[in-house]
Design a protein around this nucleic acid. Structure first.
Lengths: 238, 238
DNA sequence: ATAAGCAATATTGTATACAGTATCCACAAT
DNA sequence: ATTGTGGATACTGTATACAATATTGCTTAT
């Protein structure tokens, strides 16, 4: 065991899951690639028990698929999966925003969100789209952590891990994404600050929907039209 | 190993997770109870490896809590948790109904749902509330399986395992629940059959909301008022 | 008598050994 | 030549052994 610098705060399996997750998102492990246990064990200097625990955690996040006797593979990035993911994220992210807007201390939350929004604007000004992307990721995590609903937080965190892979592919090629994000997030924070729960939910739903359409266009270079109107569930509400 | 009658179709861990889940829902293992590994291993005649896999699956379903070095415990049933669960189930169950209503073969799905609805009516007629409860559970599972969104199906299955524990407590004491369920489900199936996605979503949201209020009243015998308006997210939509 | 500290025990986290099955390649038969 | 079958190999699923830590009870000191 070489990585005994951190002990007992979190299990090795949980730590390993995060490290593997980062590798999968950055496509160090390619989509569809088979993850052989002993190989990864020797690479990370651990045993198979915590690795299998990590695999199970990643399965819950939708990053790998484990089939009995057939081993563990990195899940493929497909348009269908992106669509399914988005159909779930829209109502849940909207619910998260609504809960934030209904908090008594929403002003404090809004101020925290403003900090990350400022980071996004800063990143846009200097043209560092990766920094803007990361600020956006931090803002999302912040929202989930402040929604005061542990079940919702768990679900959204799970979904975001998978959604992140698509966003990672999109962020570099689409220079206009950051502008849309800044604009939409500013609008969202304003509704949260004002305590208008339903409006915050609607704005958030539109935001996720717009990001989805952009990712989808980039993912499908032949500009296939968006057929299914995923947004109906919450966009029309309130 | 005594349970080798089923082999390689599913792992022992997955099978065990379902068995433990049933035990937890039926409160064979009481809420808050500590689940010691060796004790359960000897009881089920298996080893610790698949048991730990089962524990992790159950953790994902929110039925147990695992803390490093402190072991695994059955999660407590609390009003807060029920509220959080419901806040997530309302938008997701509504989305599920909307997807069903948008399916091309919605008529076939509606017919399948009708069968379970008939079983609920039958159970009500003979006064067998447990049978009605189980038909309701089957109908819910059927809806999730037919929504044509694997991500949504996974999320809803997870949430329903936890929600089932509260419903199990409620079903016997509340004789009126079944009537409400039959009425609401009939309305829901009608909207699905008609292909009205938004209306189906709204009806479903109301249905989950009503079941929640009933469970909450039973769970809190001192008739504490429902403060938070959880239903706003989708109920007002369309 | 009560509280604090230490030791013994029990339980979890990790590593490794063993068993069973899927995959792959070679050889043979049509 | 191609396809099917058989065996060898490699990998996963499971069991158990070992290590580390939390808990509990007892002893001692204030």
């Amino acid at each position: 065991m070489e990585l005994d610098q951190e002990l007992s705060l979190r299990s090795i399996g949980a730590e390993l899951a995060d490290r593997l997750e980062a590798a999968i998102v950055r496509e160090v492990f390619a989509p569809g690639e088979k993850l052989r246990e002993v190989e990864i064990c020797s690479r990370f200097g651990i045993s198979r028990s915590p690795l299998r625990e990590a695999f199970q955690i990643l399965e819950g996040r939708g990053l790998v698929e484990r089939r009995p006797r057939l081993g563990t593979r990195v899940t493929e990035l497909t348009v269908d999966n992106l669509d399914e993911l988005t159909a779930c994220r829209i109502p849940l992210e909207a619910t998260c925003s609504r809960l934030l807007a209904e908090r008594a201390d929403r002003e404090a939350v809004a101020r925290e969100l403003d900090l990350e929004l400022a980071a996004m604007r800063e990143a846009k000004a200097v043209g560092d789209f990766l920094a803007g992307f990361e600020a956006n990721v931090r803002m999302t995590a912040l929202m989930h952590g402040r929604c005061a609903n542990s079940v919702l937080m768990r679900l959204l965190d799970q979904l975001d891990k998978a959604a992140l892979r698509y966003r990672f592919r999109a962020y570099r090629s689409a220079t206009g994404i950051l502008d849309h994000m800044i604009e939409g997030n500013a609008e969202m924070i304003a509704e949260i600050r004002a305590g208008r729960g339903c409006e915050a939910a609607a704005v958030t739903a539109r935001l996720v929907d717009r990001a989805w359409r952009t990712s989808r266009r980039l993912f499908l270079p032949d500009a296939q039209a968006v057929s299914r109107p995923l947004k109906n569930s919450v966009l029309a509400g309130c």
